[in-house]
Design a protein around this nucleic acid. Structure first.
Lengths: 126, 126
DNA sequence: TCCTTTAGTATCCTTTTGTATACTATACCA
DNA sequence: TGGTATAGTATACAAAAGGATACTAAAGGA
């Protein structure tokens, strides 16, 4: 009744999808199916090549995404979510839903407080 | 059709629950209702005081948990999830479910591979 | 008088994460 | 001959996260 070791499983799960970039990468892949490296880079505006590569490698190691290299001269590499990775969809959807709500919450706080409103999505302007 | 700024909301949401410790802390609080600092520390075995304090402060700032200080001599501080924080339950449950599955996946990999099996939950032994 | 307990701080250190920049190969194009 | 494009790697560096340890206050017990 004291410690529930089951909770540790969450810890393990989290290691895979936790991080600044992985959930966004996965959401893009879920939405678009198959994406090239450069497409992903464009879709996740502030990520650097190094971080994108690193995160993709880690997701690949966990069998969450597939990586297909075409032996072409300007290289072409395609990434897609595996069947196994698709099981993450409920988590990502729940995050997305909650994120939308929480953003409103944040905006309300802003209107009487200390946060700037402009730094939400920098993909459209600037 | 190119960039969906909605995904950025996930990014924002994630900042709050991402991290090695927050989801486990929240799961314990969801399960147990109200917990003292020391209870939490015992429940999350490998966390340091510094990390626990830091994560609790951050969750408090986001109005996800409440912190009640009793002005006693050996200090007593109780933490609980706010109504707002309870909205995270679907995410945490989805994580927990997936985590359980993924652990099996991992174990399968181990049996033909390169991982040690003993490091899942260190709360019971050692 | 010393030890214990609780909920932390403070300090120092290591590791991870992230940024910036330069570099690669090779086919195509001008 | 030089520029462009792709999917990276290599390097150097800065910042954040995390870990280990020591310290605090003030009451109670041995």
């Amino acid at each position: 009744m004291n410690i529930e070791p089951e909770l540790c499983k969450v810890e393990n799960a989290l290691e895979i999808i936790v991080g600044k970039w992985k959930p966004i990468i996965l959401l893009h892949l879920l939405k678009n199916g198959t994406m090239r490296f450069s497409e992903l880079k464009r879709s996740v505006p502030n990520i650097t090549q190094k971080m994108l590569t690193k995160n993709l490698r880690e997701l690949e190691e966990e069998y969450i995404i597939d990586r297909v290299v075409y032996p072409q001269v300007p290289p072409k590499v395609e990434y897609s979510i595996t069947e196994y990775g698709k099981e993450l969809e409920p988590i990502l959807n729940a995050m997305h839903e909650w994120g939308t709500k929480h953003q409103l919450h944040k905006t309300e706080k802003t209107s009487r407080g200390d946060r700037s409103t402009g730094l939400f999505c920098s993909s459209a302007s600037q």
